[in-house]
């Protein structure tokens, strides 16, 4: 994930405001649930795929597709005996298409957002959403601590490796409780201590003296954002039109 990796890209999608990508993901998530015809779902899925391609993170894309493909095949593999049991010789597998298209269409846009958002960009986006302090402060603490915990995990794994204990699939199967204890006990302690320290730091900086904040460097939606939002509104409108409205005759 871009957010986890912290790498820097300057392509079209990377320069979109995080709020735009959130709006696109939210719109697609809601519309695909309403649709049940393959054609409009495929249309959203294909456009979403190009949206995802523009992140340029081909390796991660391939991995995500591989993962979701494996999951869907496993789920379908388990579902087929149930279908046979329920319907016998009348079993039809065509009904897999629509759920799969919904999953792929949603995955494309949310993955595009996850692969192109940078952590600091997310903090700015959160700030620009004008969230109240009681939502902004914990959310920003979560984002701020994700890279810190990833580094902690690396350090703990390495210090255990030096002690002679290798954390991996084998240890997880052979000594699950010990593995969890060795890995997570220091992390929980770290979390509690960091929370105490940062809580005190917040008090000592006078955070919470006012209920609203100012923004010294506000992010503004630009032409790219307007274009992207307009494009997706038209596309989702078209898809809904094909299924429910005047374009219904386009369907086979």
């Amino acid at each position: 994930m871009q957010a986890y990796s912290g790498t820097n890209n300057t392509g079209f999608i990377h320069r979109l405001d995080a709020r735009t990508k959130m709006a696109v993901a939210a719109g697609v998530s809601i519309v695909v649930v309403c649709l049940k015809e393959p054609l409009p779902l495929a249309l959203i899925g294909i456009m979403g795929f190009f949206f995802l391609l523009s992140t340029g993170r081909f390796r991660l894309m391939a991995l995500a597709y591989l993962f979701i493909g494996l999951m869907l095949i496993t789920a379908a593999g388990c579902a087929i005996p149930i279908i046979k049991l329920l319907k016998g010789s009348d079993a039809s597998y065509a009904d897999f298409l629509v759920p799969f298209l919904r999953i792929i269409a949603t995955m494309n846009v949310v993955l595009a957002m996850a692969l192109s958002n940078r952590i600091q960009g997310m903090l700015s986006a959160l700030k620009s959403l004008r969230l109240p302090l009681f939502i902004y402060l914990p959310t920003s603490a979560t984002i701020r601590f994700i890279p810190v915990f990833m580094e902690d995990v690396r350090q703990i794994r390495e210090s255990l490796k030096i002690r002679g204990f290798h954390i991996g699939v084998k240890s997880l199967f052979l000594h699950p409780i010990l593995t969890l204890r060795l890995m997570f006990a220091p992390l929980v302690i770290r979390a509690l201590r960091s929370a105490d320290d940062l809580g005190m730091a917040a008090e000592l900086k006078g955070i919470g003296l006012t209920t609203s904040s100012t923004h010294h460097n506000p992010t503004r939606l630009g032409f790219r954002d307007a274009f992207t939002l307009l494009f997706w509104v038209l596309l989702l409108g078209l898809s809904l039109g094909i299924e429910f409205g005047p374009l219904k005759e386009m369907l086979p």
């Binding site: 302090l133 009681f134 402060l137 914990p138 959310t139 920003s140 603490a141 979560t142 984002i143 701020r144 601590f145 994700i146 915990f149 992390l187 929980v188 979390a191 509690l192 960091s194 929370a195 105490d196 940062l198 809580g199 005190m200 917040a202 008090e203 955070i207 919470g208």
Partner: peptide, 15 residues
Amino acid sequence: WQPGELIVIGIFSAM
């Protein structure tokens, strides 16, 4: 909500 409580909630979400 005190800042300390909000931060605990945030840090545990990350964890």
